[in-house]
C-alpha cells in the first residue's frame, strides 16, 4: 500500500453473488485520471450536461433502465466517454464497471466521437454476395479512414453493420437515417456530396 489513499473503484458482480473489491492505487495515477475526466467533461456544454442529467433522473429507479439511458445520452451528446459513464453510474446508482461493461459489449455504443454523418455499410450476407465489401473499401479510400474511424473534420465516420434488413436492395449503406441501396462504386461521390 503506497500512501494512505484507498479507493473503492468498483464492485465485481458475479451472476449470483456480489463481491466487493477494494483497489489500491497510486495517488498520482488517480490524479491523472481525474484530470482526464475533468477535461473530457469540459467539452460538453452546460446545456448538454443538464440534458444528460435529465435523462438520468427520469430513469432513476426503473429496473433495466441502463441501456435506454445510454441510448438517449448517446443520441444527445454523440458518444459515451468514461466521464459520462461515471456520471450515469452515480446517477443510477450502478457500479461504473457495470456501465463500462455494457458500453463495451454493445456495438451501438461508442466511446469515441462519431462524425456529423455516420455511414454504416451493411456487410450482411446478401450485401456481401452483391459486392458490399467493395463499397466499403472504396469509401474507406475516399474518406481516408478505416471502419470505426472518423474524418479529421468530423464530417463523416464509417462503420460496418451486419444486416439492415434491406436485403432486397443489396448492397446497402445508411447515412444518418437515410438508406441507400443498389450501390455502385461510381455513385458514391454523388451520394456523399449531399451530406455536408
Amino acid at each position: 500500500m503506497i500512501g494512505n489513499q484507498d479507493l473503492l473503484l468498483g464492485e465485481v458482480v458475479c451472476y449470483h453473488k456480489r463481491h466487493t473489491v477494494h483497489y489500491q492505487l497510486r495517488e498520482d495515477v488517480v490524479a491523472i485520471q481525474l484530470e482526464q475526466a475533468r477535461s473530457e467533461l469540459a467539452q460538453f456544454s452546460q446545456e448538454e450536461l443538464s440534458q444528460v442529467d435529465g435523462i438520468i433522473s427520469r430513469n432513476r429507479g426503473k429496473p433495466g433502465a441502463l441501456i435506454p439511458v445510454l441510448e438517449q445520452v448517446q443520441s444527445t451528446i454523440g458518444y459515451l466517454p468514461v466521464s459520462i459513464q461515471m456520471r450515469i453510474a452515480q446517477g443510477l446508482n450502478i457500479p461504473p464497471s457495470n456501465v463500462y461493461g455494457v458500453v463495451t459489449f454493445y456495438s451501438f455504443f461508442t466511446m469515441v466521437p462519431r462524425g456529423r454523418h455516420n455511414i454504416r455499410v451493411c456487410l450482411g450476407t446478401a450485401c456481401y454476395v452483391r459486392g458490399g465489401q467493395k463499397i466499403l473499401n472504396k469509401l474507406s479510400d475516399m474518406l481516408g479512414i478505416d471502419p470505426g474511424g472518423c474524418t479529421d473534420d468530423r464530417r463523416f465516420s464509417l462503420e460496418t453493420v451486419r444486416c439492415l434488413g434491406a436485403c432486397g436492395l443489396a448492397p446497402v449503406k445508411v447515412i444518418n437515417n437515410d438508406t441507400h441501396g443498389q450501390l455502385k462504386v461510381s455513385r458514391l461521390d454523388g451520394i456523399l456530396a449531399k451530406y455536408q
Binding site: 450482411g124 450476407t125 446478401a126 444486416c163 434491406a166 436485403c167
Partner: peptide, 10 residues
C-alpha cells in the same frame, strides 16, 4: 432479427 439476410420480422 439479427440474422444477416433476414427481414421477415421487420
Amino acid at each position: 432479427e439479427g440474422d444477416p439476410g433476414a427481414f421477415m420480422d421487420r
